[in-house]
Amino acid sequence: MNRTFDRYSSICFALVGALFVVESRNISTSAYGSEVGPNMFPLGLGLILILLSLRLFWESSRKTAGDSASGNVAQLQYKRFFIMLAATFLYVFLLEPIGYILTTFLFLFISFQVMGSKSYLKTTLVSLCFSVGVYYVYVNLLKGTLPGFPVWSGM
């Protein structure tokens, strides 16, 4: 358990609660024919969230004195994680501009390699099969919508 995380997250949750409280005051207070308006539920919940966050903050600071030996044995692979995260974000943002097949193929190809695939042939085959297969089945057989090839490619 990571107490620093607990402390910062309790502050974040309290801020989220405060945001909802402040913003719900801008919503009209009453609906026609009812005593309770659309603002009451989020307002109340926001207050509860702030109280709970305070409790979490208190809990996390109280434990500081006690157990400090929280050795994290597993080695974290930050480099791999950030490459994959960046690849996923790129995939998501480029999906509409350059189309499903191209982005999916590239994303899979790159991430298979990052994750430690040894053979280029296998990687290419699997990514090609998945991207083309999903596109064909979904768009041609099930008549769904996916961005095809970019307009400028002329395909």
Binding site: M84, Y91, T104, S111, V134
Partner: peptide, 19 residues
């Protein structure tokens, strides 16, 4: 092999949500 499985799960999630 997990190196095939993990990227495929991401791709399926993205496909599913976008669809």
């Amino acid at each position: 092999p997990p190196h095939f499985l993990i990227p495929l799960i991401i791709a399926i999630s993205v496909f599913g949500v976008y669809a």
